[in-house]
Computed example of a mutant assay.
Amino acid sequence: MKAVVHAEKIGLDGLTLTNMDVPTPAEGEVRVKLKTAGLNHRDLFVPNRHKLEDGPLILGSDGAGIVDEVGPGVEDVHVGAEVIINPGLGWKENTPAPPEGFEIVGLPFHGTFANYIIVPAENVLPKPSHLNWNEAGVLSLAALTAYRALFTRGQVKQGMNVFIPGIGSGVATFLLQFAKAVGATVYVTSRSEVKRQKALELGADVAIDSAAEDWEAALNGVKMDLVIECVGAATFNKSLAQLKKGGTIVTFGSSTGDTFQFDLRSFFYGQYNLLGSTMGSGEELEQMLEFISTNNIKPVVDTMYTLDEFEAAFDRINKAEQLGKIGFIIEK
């Protein structure tokens, strides 16, 4: 089978398209013949974290396809089922934090950028009927991350003011769609006029030019109940400054750096809440799928590539040119 793998050298230069053996499911596992897969920022970091001595690794965490073989002992998943992949391994119930041993498909285990993938039977769920294959294949990781950050951690509710800096990524577009679906007022930022306009079309109430505008001036005194911060060091303090007293900031991303300083005294006098979040549990994934089905929410798909075009796909996400999700068409 064809697969995008990391091997031979550290970094994105170590990626190659090659042939791998078609895997066979063991007890409790299923094999999915993938039709589409989704590219995430995580896939940019894996080539720097994967140990070359562990052998070639197939990248990719999101995917959708058809079950074509089940291993011994699998009774509740059947050949021919149209499914999406739950990328989280070993996190079933909604707990305050992932359990020990929690992993994500695509590192350290083989991922979805291939014709086939083997996963535990509990890690496939029925493809939502309102999604096409392109939409289903790019859904899980980003939408689950957004759902946990917004609902489980952020406790978003109707009427809240919600602030999302750096609109454009798959997670950010899901945050916008989810928050609007529950009746929140949503403010976003971006350097890109195209992304700001698209955010307004998706329902954002205000879109701020993060390069040219002072955020506080642009908000004209409006303060936020909830900030979902996924950019990192470059925007954290500016995001924090938009919170109302007693407000909550949820953080799950650090693409612009992990280390920065903020005013601790102002923080505790403001009675702010700072919460970390990361992806989500199988229980939350099921809740998210029900939520998007009830509200007819679909992923914003930016560009779909073939596996042969993986270099162009990685280049696009690395330059943050996308609005929404980038994906691969593996089989039409």
Score class of each variant (00 low, 15 high):
Met1Lys: 06
Ala3Arg: 09
Lys9Trp: 08
Asp13Ser: 14
Leu15Gly: 05
Leu15Arg: 04
Asn19Gln: 13
Thr24Glu: 13
Gly28Thr: 11
Lys33Glu: 15
Lys33Ser: 13
Gly38Ile: 08
Asn40Ala: 11
Asp43Thr: 00
Asp43His: 10
Leu44Arg: 04
Lys51Tyr: 09
Leu52Arg: 11
Ser61His: 02
Asp62Asn: 04
Gly63Arg: 02
Gly63His: 06
Ile66Asp: 00
Gly73Phe: 08
Val74Phe: 08
Glu75Trp: 10
Asp76Pro: 00
Asp76Ala: 08
Val77Ser: 06
Val79Glu: 10
Gly80Ala: 07
Ala81Asp: 15
Pro87Thr: 14
Gly88Trp: 00
Glu93Pro: 01
Asn94Pro: 00
Thr95Asn: 10
Glu100Leu: 09
Gly101Tyr: 10
Gly106Tyr: 09
Leu107Lys: 09
Phe109Leu: 13
Gly111Glu: 02
Pro126Asp: 15
Asn132Glu: 05
Ala136Tyr: 02
Leu139His: 03
Leu139Ala: 09
Thr145Leu: 02
Ala149Lys: 04
Gly154Ile: 09
Gln158Thr: 15
Gln158Phe: 14
Ile164Val: 13
Gly168Ala: 03
Ala172Cys: 04
Phe174His: 05
Gln177Met: 13
Phe178Trp: 07
Gly183Val: 04
Val186Gly: 02
Thr189Ile: 01
Arg191Pro: 03
Val194Ser: 14
Arg196Asn: 02
Lys198His: 14
Ala199Trp: 12
Val206His: 12
Ile208Ala: 13
Ala212Ser: 15
Glu213Met: 14
Asp214Ala: 04
Ala218Phe: 12
Asn220Leu: 06
Lys223Phe: 01
Lys223Gln: 12
Lys223Ile: 08
Asp225Arg: 03
Val227Lys: 03
Gly232Trp: 01
Lys238Tyr: 00
Leu240Ile: 04
Gly247Asn: 03
Thr248Pro: 00
Thr248Leu: 06
Thr248Lys: 09
Thr251Pro: 03
Gly257Glu: 02
Asp263Cys: 03
Leu264Lys: 06
Leu264Asn: 11
Phe268Ile: 11
Ser277Gln: 08
Ser277Leu: 10
Gly282Leu: 09
Leu289Ala: 07
Glu290Gln: 14
Glu290Asp: 11
Phe291Ser: 03
Ile292Val: 15
Thr294Asp: 15
Pro299Glu: 05
Val301Lys: 02
Met304Glu: 00
Glu311Val: 10
Phe314Gln: 00
Phe314Tyr: 14
Phe314Lys: 00
Ile317Gln: 00
Ile317Lys: 01
Asn318Gly: 11
Lys319Met: 03
Lys319Leu: 10
Lys325Tyr: 05
Ile329Glu: 15
Ile329Asp: 10
